[in-house]
Structure formats: structure tokens, C-alpha cells
């Protein structure tokens, strides 16, 4: 959960000077969400950023992709995303192995349980 409520988001979106089609898309997305989640916030951010980029582009302000600083910042972002995904995959692999281990252990224990039941049967006759 975030600190924003749906009403907070809707009122903030209404206060922005946005193209009507973008506004209605954002409003619709917020209204159809069951609650405000980080994923919803991220999606709204992406759309607002796109609107902002378009606004800059409309007045002739664009990124200079040949700028070394731009490349540096871009690469930092990509490296961090790669690193986050790599760490995540590593952790998920470990978790999956743990899950397999739990399943095998429990399965073996249930097999033993069945064997014990068979022994109990023989002993009780």
C-alpha cells in the first residue's frame, strides 16, 4: 500500500494541464484499480513522464544522447536494472531450490508414514 488514496491521485491528475485523452486514460486507470499499489503508481509515472517528454519535445527541448553525461546516467540506470534483476533471479533460484527440498522432504516423510501404517497393520494382527 502507498500513502496515496485513489481520491488523492484523481485530484492531482485533475489539477494537471494534460491533453484530455491522456487525462481520461489516467483517470480510468486509477478508477478501475482496486487500490493504489506501487505498480499503479509506476504506471502513472511512466505516462506522466511520457507527457513531460512530449511537452519538452514540443518546445524543442530534447535529450542530447551524444552527451557523455547522458550516456553515463543512462548506463548507470541500465546497470542498476541489470543488477537488480540478476540479484532477484539468484534469490528466486535459491527459493525454488528450497521449495523443491521442502517438497522432497515432506514427500519422504509421507512415504515413511505409509510404511509405518503397514507395519502397524502387521503387528496388530
Amino acid at each position: 500500500m502507498t500513502q496515496f488514496t485513489k481520491e488523492d491521485l484523481l485530484s492531482k491528475i485533475e489539477a494537471l494541464d494534460l491533453d484530455e485523452s491522456i487525462r481520461s486514460e489516467l483517470v480510468s486507470e486509477v478508477q478501475s484499480a482496486s487500490e493504489v499499489t506501487p505498480e499503479l503508481i509506476s504506471s502513472i509515472k511512466d505516462k506522466i513522464q511520457k507527457a513531460l517528454d512530449d511537452a519538452f519535445a514540443a518546445v524543442g527541448v530534447t535529450d542530447d544522447e551524444s552527451d557523455p553525461m547522458y550516456k553515463k546516467k543512462f548506463n548507470e540506470m541500465i546497470e542498476e536494472i541489470d543488477s537488480a534483476e540478476k540479484d532477484y533471479n539468484k534469490e528466486m533460484t535459491a527459493i525454488n531450490k528450497e521449495a523443491d527440498k521442502i517438497k522432497v522432504t515432506a514427500s519422504d516423510q509421507l512415504d515413511d508414514l505409509q510404511k509405518q501404517a503397514a507395519k502397524d497393520k502387521i503387528n496388530s494382527i
Binding site: D17, L18, D19, S21, I22, A51, D54, A55, A58
Partner: peptide, 8 residues
């Protein structure tokens, strides 16, 4: 709209 915000 401001400077064509939302223009594709």
C-alpha cells in the same frame, strides 16, 4: 493544453 502535451 500546454505545448501540445500528450501529442503522440
Amino acid at each position: 493544453a500546454f505545448f501540445g502535451l500528450g501529442k503522440k
